[in-house]
Design a protein around this nucleic acid. Structure first.
Lengths: 229, 229
DNA sequence: GAGTGGTCTAGACCACATT
DNA sequence: ATGTGGTCTAGACCACTCG
């Protein structure tokens, strides 16, 4: 099993600091030559390293060394920008699109909505040092909102909610699971179809209104982990 | 991108119920013939389905249709056997090995132990309907235990702790992350090196003793997800 | 013993990113 | 324009599983 040895050789280079976080690996053809093998086998090794979160792939751009992951803690539920700050990372949110429309099946399920409910839906991209790492879909029930300014649409959902003066909002429930990227998500994240990702779903509720907002975040899996403290 | 079409074709067969959960797919060579392609491309498609948790691989045995995943809820922190029961699955725990030894780096870190601390370490395999799906390492500080019978060693950690009459034990912290299987774990789980997995770490503590026990569970990723309720 | 999955080779073409 | 990664072909051998 050659590709195990190749994986270990590259992993060692990363751990020893010879290859710095964020830097690019040599081209697949060069690496294949170096290890005296073919691209197919080399890519097998790279995929293992990718699975471990040690390197990541940018579609058609090459392979790069991962940074240390962010750590999302459901207990304190920091919003995305706070999460970045906690790790001293340069996080920025960009708005992809937004619309008021009928809730789709997944949104209706998440918020327990009756058929034909209208919701506000926004989609955002979170970038770290310019690299897109997560795509978020936010769903909000419009009756619960007094007013949204355009500039607020690229705020984290939690921040937006906070501006709405609804008392006692809390993270009602969340779900974490391993997922893989579809064509659309892959493109937004400069990744490729089928890449592993971590899906984090959150539902926000208040005693008065019950469940009224939710988000689905699709994270590149090398970027985040989940836990306490 | 042929392999996307092949993936979708197989996924459709699964969703429509033509292929039942738990059943085996035809051999790779047959499938490659069916889709008029080579094994390499076919395996690309199968890997996507595996990443989505729709199918899973048993090392050298073939590809199988996944069951619906268990759902681990840190809030209530059900033990592994309870978790299986909640989904009406036939879960069984087998003891791999156990020993009293010096805490390794990862154990010491988890429990905040001083150097040269002795701990009890047990390793277990959880099987669902006979299929090994998770490997658990339990770490316990021996001072906190009155006595352990051999028959208790294949109990879930939480159940074992409950038998020890330590008041107010709680799940102190946990961590969930995507990981990949090393040679050893892969073998225990009838999987292959580098396969994606979900790692769940838990630390138990009580007001009197602080952190005194922990577990690291390595789950085949098609089998489990994490969330509330 | 036949068939299977695991691994590997040695190419090829294309679309895209970068220069 | 060059080189790169993404995709695909058409084989091969071995070790293992299973009947």
């Amino acid at each position: 099993m050659q590709y195990i040895k190749i994986r270990d050789a590259i992993a060692e280079q990363v751990n020893s600091g010879t290859l710095e976080a964020g830097s690019k690996l040599p081209s697949e053809r060069k690496l294949a030559d170096t290890f005296r093998t073919t691209r197919v086998t080399l890519r097998e090794a790279l995929s293992l390293l990718e699975a471990d979160g040690i390197i990541y792939r940018e579609d058609r751009r090459g392979w790069f060394i991962s940074q240390r992951p962010l750590k999302y803690t459901p207990d304190s539920d920091p919003d995305q920008l706070t999460l970045c700050e906690l790790s001293s990372r340069d996080g920025k949110i960009a708005l992809l699109k937004h619309a008021t429309l009928m809730a789709d099946k997944s949104a209706a399920l998440l918020l327990g909505l009756p058929p034909f409910s209208e919701v506000i839906k926004t989609e955002q991209i979170l970038s770290l040092e310019g690299r897109p790492v997560a795509r978020t879909v936010n769903i909000i029930m419009p009756e619960r909102l007094t007013m949204i300014e355009d500039e607020q649409l690229n705020l984290p959902l939690k921040t937006l909610i906070a501006s709405q003066c609804i008392p006692d909002v809390s993270l009602h429930s969340y779900r974490v699971c391993v997922a893989s990227l579809d064509t659309d998500h892959a493109a937004s994240l400069r990744s490729s179809v089928g890449s592993m990702a971590l899906l984090i779903e959150k539902v926000y509720a208040s005693p008065q209104h019950g469940k009224f907002a939710a988000s689905k975040e699709m994270w590149r899996h090398d970027v985040i982990e989940v836990g306490t403290h």
